[in-house]
Design a protein around this nucleic acid. Structure first.
Length: 506
RNA sequence: GGUUCCGUCGUCUAGUGGUCUAGGACGUCUGGUUCUCAUCCAGAAAAUCGCGGGUUCGACUCCCGCCGGAAUCACCA
């Protein structure tokens, strides 16, 4: 049975690089019967705490459907799940180390430590605190919270296995007397996560490769505590689009929530991220969450960093938008475009920070019926890269476009027609369409075909003229579909309007 | 500087000694689908497998060296 955890610190939003270390442990947990995915908040650094960050974490996980079995807002057997509330547990473990002679209180002021560091740097020596260990470290096991507590290291070479990186080893020179408990009585990450993962019976620690260099120290603590360690799964970095650096907030990495707000669907985000640095060896590109759970395999995680490519994410999103429409129908896709958002409702339960109504339609669209919006959606959905494209692509379905003859006549096909021809073609179209009794897409297609035959014009010329006269948009769905959705009255009114504008211009 | 990791088309990747004149996807380009945009379909260009040695009948695949990139060296995680 796999027990994994996602353990973010509430220091801001979650970016693409961060979520991957939530997705993989989620998949690992779900692959086993009775697996547990735990959400723990690592809030031991009060200086870095950011208001609203926890809510953003909840919203992100909820949106992606990475439901946790235990953790904050949910409870479980290993409560509490905020590290700041687990102080007594860490202190108990710290006392064990103290008693075993593997920890010591260190009253050395930080200014003094800075001096040591400076000295060593000047001598071109790597700074190791154990070389400056105070004498009291060996003589006394007294410790009062309020004084930092350090690990008493016993330098030696270590070897260990990482599920992704393979067999690793380092020399004794990296082990040091790291801080276990800070002056404020709260543990450092280095100590807290070891205690918590053990207490919560975590089987796999999934985290970024940046922790690799601390592994010897962690291993030493596990050993001193006399406890076994979980499997280690080190994830390579997600690299920023530009440069060679890992994705980071400092360099402007976008929040996952930003993508949600722009209308990236959760399936695409999950799919793209899961496959950034992992593949199952086949040529499959599109995976549902269930398929990922079924096929994910730790041993196939990449060892090198992967660059984030927004263009490919957007391609995936287009694929998923079409897939949702094709497999679940227009209603399902429509629900993604305007609805109460479960993810932000959940986050708002702690702190109402965000509007929980998501709506990707132009404002004016809300004056129309849901049924009408669905009709629009069903003819335009296959052009969407993100759901918010609706705002730009559909306005002419809801309000009459401004007549702009310059725009009309600059079209490369319409340009070939004289204004007189344009007028004649439009009035012929109006006459013909007026007689259409049953305003259906099929009938309209037939009518347009007849018109084409009668006028002898090229489709490109005739259709472009009509299309732009009713939409004044750079592009639109197929003409007969657009007209069918728009309705007879509106279509003819718009054609008339353009026609008279041309007459006035003559 | 110490330590550690990484290195196949622009990008994500397949590849575990011969089936690799290196496969797929995104992107790019060309053509097709009675109009635009998009989709879809077909096709093209695109990787001297970081470099140099070695082992081998044979190396992208194993070994060594080098180079390049990254991460980390906090009372941050």
């Amino acid at each position: 049975m796999n027990i994994t955890r996602f353990a973010p610190s509430p220091t801001g939003y979650i970016h693409l690089g961060n979520v991957r270390s939530a997705i993989y442990p989620y998949l690992i947990a779900k692959q086993s019967d009775g697996g547990n995915f735990i959400l723990r908040i690592e809030d031991t650094d009060q200086n870095r705490y950011v208001e609203g960050a926890t809510e953003l974490i909840l919203e992100t996980l909820t949106w992606l459907g990475l439901d946790w079995d235990e953790g904050i807002e949910k409870g479980g057997d290993h409560s509490p799940y905020y590290q700041s509330e687990r102080r007594d547990i860490y202190h108990a473990y710290a006392r064990k180390l103290l008693k075993a002679g593997r920890a010591y209180a260190d009253p050395t002021p930080s200014e003094k430590i800075d001096e040591y560091r400076k000295e060593d740097n000047e001598k071109k020596l790597p700074f190791l605190y154990r070389n400056h260990r105070p004498e009291t470290a060996d003589s006394s096991d007294a410790w009062e919270p309020g004084t930092p507590l350090r690990f008493k290291s016993d330098p030696k070479s270590v070897e260990w296995h990482d599920e992704v990186m393979g067999d690793l080893k380092t020399g004794p020179e990296v082990m040091d007397d790291i801080i276990l408990i800070k002056k404020d009585g709260l543990p450092t990450y280095n100590f807290a996560h070891i205690v918590d993962d053990y207490e919560m019976q975590v089987t796999h620690i999934v985290r970024g490769v940046e922790y690799l260099s601390s592994m010897p120290n962690y291993l030493a603590i596990y050993e001193a505590l006399g406890i076994s360690h979980p499997k280690f799964v080190s994830l390579p970095h997600v690299l920023a689009t530009q440069g060679n650096k890992k994705l980071s907030k400092r360099d402007g990495a976008k929040s996952v929530i930003d993508y949600k707000d722009e209308g990236v669907v959760k399936e695409a985000m999950l799919n793209y991220l899961a496959c950034l640095g992992w593949n199952d060896g086949t040529e499959q590109e599109i995976y549902s969450k269930d398929e990922l759970i079924e096929k994910f395999d730790i041993s196939r995680i990449q060892t090198s960093g992967a660059r984030f490519d927004e263009v490919k994410l957007l391609w995936q999103n287009g694929q998923w938008i079409r897939k949702i429409y094709d497999e679940q129908g227009v209603d399902a896709l429509y629900d993604r475009t305007v609805s109460r958002d479960e993810a932000s409702i959940k986050s708002n339960a702690i702190n109402p920070t965000r509007d929980s109504l998501i709506n990707f339609w132009p404002e004016i669209a809300m004056d129309y019926s849901e049924d009408y919006r669905k009709q629009v959606l069903s003819i335009i959905y296959d052009r969407l890269k993100v759901l918010s494209d609706l705002r730009e692509y559909t306005t002419y379905f809801f309000e009459d476009p401004r007549i702009d003859l310059e725009f009309l006549q600059s079209n490369k096909f319409i340009k070939k027609l004289s204004e007189t021809e344009q007028r004649d073609l439009l009035s012929a179209a109006i006459d013909k369409l007026q007689n259409v009794e049953d305003w259906t897409a099929d009938n309209l297609q037939n009518t347009l075909n007849d018109l084409l035959a009668e006028t002898g014009k090229k489709p490109a010329e005739l259709f472009s003229l009509i299309r732009i006269a009713i939409s004044y948009a750079n592009f639109s769905p197929a003409l007969h579909l657009t007209m069918a959705v728009l309705g007879k009255d509106r279509t003819i009114a718009r054609l008339n309007a353009t026609c008279s504008a041309i007459v006035n211009d003559l």
